[in-house]
Simulated assay, not measured.
Amino acid sequence: MRVKALRGESNTGLLEPCSGVELKTTGNVTTGKRVEFDWIEIKKGRYIHQNCSHPLRSGDENYFKRIHGLEYKNRKIYWLYTFGSMDKPQGHHVGFSWWEHQKFLWLQEMHWLQKENNIRYMVNLIFLVLGVVIAFKQL
């Protein structure tokens, strides 16, 4: 999943897409070209920014956090730490639409459908509805 990196204006809480550099490697030569948007590729447990992979999870520790005070086109904003280091204030803001947010949570294995208690609840609910349907058919 590809998302745009965002940067904020100081003391406004508003974000906007930032421009970036696209790196191309040919043999031993790497060249950079200025592009309109800075893209971040979200993968399972990591993200890739400018051909460099950064972790998003390590065991129970998350290297990202949800930011509720920032806005960009009614999207959910996250801060992704660089190289899994929470000590340094380096990282990237990204914004997810509702569908992208569900996909991001699924890739990081944090979606509510992936939790065992919720799966049991859904199965019990399905059996309850089937029981009610069978009971009404026998009336």
Rank of each mutant, 00 (worst) to 15 (best):
M110P: 00
H111A: 07
N118P: 01
K115W: 10
K137A: 05
I126Q: 10
N117H: 10
N118H: 12
V132D: 03
Q138D: 11
I134W: 06
V133M: 04
L107P: 00
L130S: 08
Q138Y: 15
L105H: 01
K137Y: 12
W112E: 04
A135M: 05
E109A: 07
Q114C: 07
E109S: 09
M122K: 14
H111S: 04
V132L: 11
Q108C: 00
W106E: 02
N118C: 08
I126N: 09
V129L: 14
M122N: 12
K115Y: 10
I119H: 09
L130A: 09
E109P: 01
V123I: 15
V129W: 07
F136K: 05
V129M: 12
L113W: 09
F136M: 06
L107Q: 05
L113C: 13
L130N: 07
F136Q: 08
V133A: 04
L113A: 13
G131M: 01
Q138L: 14
L125D: 13
G131F: 01
A135H: 06
N124E: 14
G131C: 01
V133Y: 04
Q138C: 09
G131D: 01
N124L: 11
V133W: 03
R120S: 07
E116A: 11
L107H: 03
M110F: 00
I119R: 15
V123R: 15
L107R: 05
M110Q: 02
